[in-house]
Amino acid sequence: MSAEAMDTVFKALADPTRRLLLDRLREQNGQTLRQVCEHLDMARQSATQHLDVLVRANLVTVVRRGRERLHYLNPGPIHEIEQRWISEFDKPRLRALSAIKNQAEEYAMNVPDYVYVTYIRASAEQVWKALTDADLTARYWGHENVSDWQPGSRWEHRRADGSGVADVVGEVLESDPPTRLVITFEDSPGQTREPSVVTFLVEPHEEIVRLTVTHEKLPDQEMLNGISSGWPAVLANLKSLLETGDVLPQAPWEMRAAHA
């Protein structure tokens, strides 16, 4: 994150009203403007202005669902702050405290949806191919995403070691190349619970693309914690591959294991 972008994030967080809006989205992610404004002692116009600041800081992202505009927390900037100022210093103790807190809170609230936004210097077609081509996913993800990517078809997230083992399987729910892909996500093949759902939204703008990944219907806090570190690592590797022609020098998810 550039210094200018970091300044924008901290300025956005400096306002107590904007922090309150973020808390509301943390409690229930994916709210309409009307829902966000409920029980707030401010006019809708004022709330809209504050939300616009959060969107410009990339702390909130807006996803269209039909006629509705749903507001989601984007953990990307907070993740970068955490990596820069926290992870190298006191992360083990903070993780232990967070685990205790999360376990207590898990019984008191539903697990929120996860949304991550990144911007990539590439075309929509290039991003789509990176998401669906088995050879490319093997390079930046360590797994081959295998399917014909037609609605109703099965997809598999196979290890790229030649074993043919699929660590994740699912069904293609929607496929609209090169802008929208919706899949179910079963990280324990054969599981009996309802699978979670992942949506990839590819929005081109001139020479860049905004890629929004939404992971919904998460079963528990443990899975939320896992994907909250997993998706940023995978997408950082994808971004590097498309922008530089090569993946990061080390697999980013290994950094998490090294600092555990």
Rank of each mutant, 00 (worst) to 15 (best):
M1I: 07
S2G: 00
A3Y: 00
T8N: 02
T8Y: 02
V9H: 00
F10N: 01
L13K: 00
P16S: 13
R24C: 04
L25V: 09
L25Y: 09
L25D: 10
R26Y: 13
E27M: 14
Q28I: 10
T32I: 05
Q35G: 15
Q35E: 15
Q35T: 11
V36W: 14
E38D: 15
R44E: 15
L51G: 06
R56F: 12
A57T: 12
N58C: 09
V62G: 08
V63S: 05
G66M: 13
E68A: 07
L70M: 12
L70D: 09
N74K: 02
N74E: 07
P75Q: 07
G76M: 07
P77C: 04
E80P: 01
I81R: 01
E82Y: 11
E82V: 01
S87Y: 12
S87F: 12
D90A: 15
R93M: 12
R95K: 14
R95Q: 13
Q103H: 08
E105Y: 06
E105F: 09
E105W: 05
E106N: 03
N110C: 08
V111D: 06
P112F: 14
V117D: 06
I120A: 04
R121L: 06
A122T: 06
A124Q: 11
W128F: 06
K129R: 15
T132C: 04
L136V: 03
Y140W: 15
W149K: 00
P151I: 04
P151A: 06
R154D: 12
E156I: 04
H157E: 02
R158E: 00
R159G: 02
A160T: 03
G162V: 01
G162A: 05
G162Y: 04
S163Q: 08
V165F: 11
V165Q: 10
V165E: 13
D167A: 08
V169K: 03
V169H: 03
G170A: 07
G170W: 03
E171D: 03
E171N: 06
L173T: 03
E174R: 02
E174V: 12
S175A: 13
S175I: 04
L181V: 05
L181S: 05
L181N: 05
V182E: 04
E186A: 11
S188E: 04
P204R: 15
H205L: 05
E207W: 03
I208N: 09
V209C: 05
T212L: 04
T212S: 07
K217T: 00
M223S: 11
M223N: 06
N225T: 12
P232V: 10
A233D: 14
N237W: 02
S240C: 13
E243G: 12
D246G: 10
L248Y: 01
Q250A: 12
Q250Y: 08
A251Q: 07
W253K: 09
E254A: 10
E254W: 10
M255C: 07
R256P: 01
A258I: 04
A258W: 08
